[in-house]
Design a protein around this nucleic acid. Structure first.
Lengths: 197, 197, 197, 197
DNA sequence: GATGAATGAGTGTTCATTCAT
DNA sequence: CATGAATGAACACTCATTCAT
């Protein structure tokens, strides 16, 4: 019983099944058959919507990236305070949002990163993502710091965010969001304190 | 040409071939056949020395970890200055040593991390490694800071090291060791400056 | 040429190819590749229909067992005489039917028996089969003999049938059905003659 | 430390290890490596004493056959009564001796039989064995029965012995020696009773 | 649009055998 | 005599992909 307009629904369905599969068995064992089973569809449908497996993987990575972007964007729009500090806080919070520090998301990000080392298409996506974080941070620091210092601060804070995230992901225990944010805020404030009055 | 006492030689040979393979094609495509070919031996020899592929992977991970440990240990022994700052510097330098920030090593570490999310044996190794860095840092900070602050500083610096390393690895460009060390030293000094005189 | 509803056809096809392979080279050398080649299909199809090789082996054993059951059932239905002797004769005849004493079937049964000593799933099937023969015989003897004697006679006749079958199979020569049946009938009649008038 | 006269010791050692291996994991999984480990020797030694694996298998089969022969011979020599009935009893007892109805022996015999269907060298051994039982039985029956009847009785008793043995082996439970012997004796006596006085 | 039958190359692994020591 | 290092072919099995229906 074919229906019209199934495309977006099926695509979403399959992307979510991919995340579920990676969470359950890891990317190496997330076969098309498993993903299709989790999505409740047949094997063959995947090539129909995403040319091949790589297409599905790339689409899933884009989906995760957009979730992060949307998350930060929403928080920023809800912001009344326009200070650099408030904006930086929003970025930090967005990166430690529950949508990013749960099991499936962390496992999938890690798997993507590892895969991106050998897949140009994933690598491109990954670089865009990395650059966005740095760029957003740098932009805010620049409002109160000279360029060189702003860049330095942005590099440091970006690394701190990713490092805390990474160590949290690898630990296997629950992610301690409060602690991570506290460490980031402290770094942020130390950098902002350098501003010439 | 079978000879006796080949075990350590062959094991080393195969571990290096594994690193080479992961560097060239990624862990997902680093097949036993490829590794054996790179090592110039037959497929079957791998199960002779490392029960199965997982055994080889785990041995390779242990090899990389030991390289890091030895690296830091050597630097520490060459140290004349016994100050906490000097020790912390050594740890930072060791983690950004050329043996850790080259292509093959970074790709392999990333692949290990991703795999460790679903392989208990690798996960155990990974946790030990993570904990060592934190523990070493904490130990030095503790010499000048109260425990709570020392822990906080260690967590931050560990995350900063890993984050800089990660972002460097993912960037695909050469690793800017000087910049990474500068950012770490700055964080380190800001934390050490908290000490009550 | 993929078609829908191929399952029963392919399963039958593969089971027959398995019998053929065991006949030709023995169970130890009846590889998936050989069976697939004999069936004229690809290797992979086997796991599609029977999870793995064990699944195919078990299905083949069930197929042979059902052939024996159907054989006896058909003969019994064609029976006008309802006497115990007639029923016993039918069981004996069924067990020495051409479908059971030809080369492929005998080789396969022997291989199954040997394998059943170390494969619980096959062992279960085998026990069911063994028990059915005994049970059927016992049931008929019971109609004219006291229970203890009936059981004894059933055990003896079952062993005689299996033993004649086994020695015939192992001899490698053609099976002498008439001789086997004569020996069984004689034993049967000696046992039935014990009935109290 | 090479020693002289090790040959018979090593051969015996390896044959026993083979029986042990077949008992533990079945003939299909009784690899040279396992047998060598069970015997406490190196892999390579096997080809030294038995050309190849088939040689070891055949030697093991011969060993088992000789054990059966010796068993019957010993019992016969201890016999005071020279009647056909006594001799037949000895043959029956020998075939149900503890050395033949224990797990390892039964598993190995079954495996040999199955293998003999496709290995001419094993098949030859097997035929000799089968014929000896028939021949021995026939010889005794002939002392009191006409040839045709003697042959018939021998065929029946041989089949009964093998059938009881087989069903006992396949059942997986302990072998009920008494019951098996009782059934054989009864058959034996019924046949002997046919003699013309 | 959707299915699932079918493929076949590729995987990790096992194993009998050989042979330098 | 005996070892065990080394081979390489064979194995069962997996899986992304294709395509007739």
């Amino acid at each position: 019983m074919p229906k019209v307009g199934m495309q977006p629904i099926r695509r979403q369905q399959l992307i979510e099944a991919t995340l579920q599969a990676v969470d359950q068995v890891g990317m190496a064992d997330a076969s098309i058959a498993l993903i299709a089973r989790l999505a409740g569809v047949s094997n063959g449908i995947i090539s129909h919507y995403f040319k091949d497996k790589n297409g599905l993987i790339a689409a899933t990575m884009r989906y995760l990236m957009n979730a992060l972007i949307d998350n930060v964007t929403e928080r920023r729009q809800a912001l009344s305070d326009d200070s650099p500090r408030a904006h930086l806080q929003v970025i930090v919070e967005g990166n430690f949002d529950a949508s990013q520090v749960n099991g499936p998301a962390m496992k999938t990000w890690l798997a993507f990163w590892a895969a991106s080392m050998h897949q140009p298409s994933l690598h491109r996506l990954q670089r865009i993502n990395d650059h966005r974080l740095y760029s957003n941070l740098c932009c805010q620091f620049r409002r109160v710091l000279p360029q060189a210092q702003a860049r330095n601060a942005a590099r440091g804070l970006a690394a701190l965010i990713d490092g805390l995230w990474l160590r949290g992901a690898l630990s296997g225990d629950g992610f301690d969001t409060d602690q991570a944010q506290r460490i980031c805020y402290e770094y942020m404030d130390l950098q902002l304190a350098k501003q010439v009055s």
